[in-house]
Design a protein around this nucleic acid. Structure first.
Lengths: 226, 226
DNA sequence: TGTACATCAGTGAACGCGCGTTCACTGATGTAC
DNA sequence: TGTACATCAGTGAACGCGCGTTCACTGATGTAC
């Protein structure tokens, strides 16, 4: 089973998410194609496993970045930069897994509920970092001029550090997490999918600048000069 | 030929970018599958046509938003919001074309040089809007604390309104365009690919808030209360 | 005005390919008495 | 200790499918003399 997942990952890395084929994986393992059905009910079931693994890797990278960054006494803003950089590095190293979860959905595939918990981990890390910035007094507790509360579905407040308290503060942190998350997957997708092609010779530099600039809009001030 | 492209678009809308099949298009047109080769050299050539059409639609939407927004005497910041909203609307209405150009690259397909000019139009509109904000005095002409010039490939300066002048100002506007572009495709992809699922009941509201917040980091202040 | 010829859009059969999934099976390993 | 049986990982042939692309062709339309 572990071998199967390893082979699936290898196939993912060479053929991409859409072209993932049970027969190809079986071939790589030196098995008959039918043998794969011992371990996995269908192609979609295998996709689900890979997607959950992907979200978990993303979540783990974020949590890890938070842990080492706060242990080093970094500011919340720098912790966010550490999260973003960790995600970028993971995405560059595992670009097809990134595509699988944040790229175009695989046609005909419907993500089951099982993936939600894993997908939430990165959001938790972001929201928690925002609350940490708030606690440290470096982030303004009042927001911009738009009706923040109305944007957020009630169930989401459970993600917040404040439990399910539907305060303005809690809503604002969640709204801000939208912007941070968006700038993160926007920056990674733009880079990985070739939209900076010919525009820069310094992709990590552009990534940092993009993340820092968007974070400034949220009130998180990252300094990129040492 | 026009019918072929129309049928290809229809197929794109139902099957998605990866599953685009010449045979399916021929079937829709009531033709033999071989007849398609009268008009198009291969599947990849058709993809290229569709991609160029897509980039042109994106570019036209941006240029159109700029034109009507400035004609109405809006601020540059509001012009950016108009561009972003126009792109979102186009993307929601043509989600599979959006995927084709800003989603996961189609496996095995290599975009030829022909697509570059069309892909550039949206960038031009963004950079031009930033220069307009600069001219009107609402945008700071000095940047954040990172080495802006080093990020930008020399050839790109031709995109700038200043011609190919490699000034700090010009570099700064291009660097800022990275952030705006990134927040735009990040926000659209997050929405279209289901990453806000369950988190909000007001997708247009979240989109506006996300765009406005990221733009604030660039120095463009959008007010979302009427 | 009429005939011969060229053009060209579209046909239909065929090629070789890879896919997901099913099904009856083999043969080794482990377990119970 | 030895035999009968159950378990279970993996086999291999087959199913029906859709794909991109090629190729020799047909038959209508237009053009030149």
């Amino acid at each position: 089973m572990a071998e199967l997942l390893a082979a699936a990952h290898a196939r993912l890395a060479t053929d991409g998410a859409g072209g993932l084929s049970l027969r190809a994986i079986a071939r790589d393992l030196g098995m008959a194609s039918s043998a794969v059905y011992r371990y996995v009910a269908s192609r979609d079931a295998l996709l689900t496993l890979l997607i959950i693994e992907g979200y978990d890797a993303v979540g783990a990278a974020a949590e890890n970045a938070v842990a080492t960054s706060t242990r080093a006494g970094e500011s919340a803003a720098n912790t966010w930069l550490a999260i973003a950089r960790a995600e970028r590095e993971w995405a560059v190293a595992n670009s097809h897994t990134y595509e699988l979860i944040y790229g175009t959905p695989v046609p005909g595939y419907q993500a089951p509920q099982d993936t939600v918990r894993a997908a939430t981990r990165i959001w938790l890390a972001i929201i928690d970092t925002l609350h940490r910035a708030l606690d440290s007094g470096t982030l303004a507790p009042t927001g911009p001029e738009f009706p923040t509360e109305r944007l957020i579905a009630p169930g989401v407040f459970e993600l917040s550090r404040l439990g399910d308290v539907q305060s303005h503060e809690s809503a604002l942190m969640i709204a801000r997490s939208f912007t941070l998350f968006t700038s993160l997957i926007g920056a990674i997708s733009a880079e990985l999918f070739g939209h900076y092609h010919g525009m820069t010779g310094d992709l990590p530099g552009v990534f940092d600048a993009t993340i820092a600039t968007a974070a400034a809009g949220v009130g998180l001030h990252i300094s990129l000069v040492p």
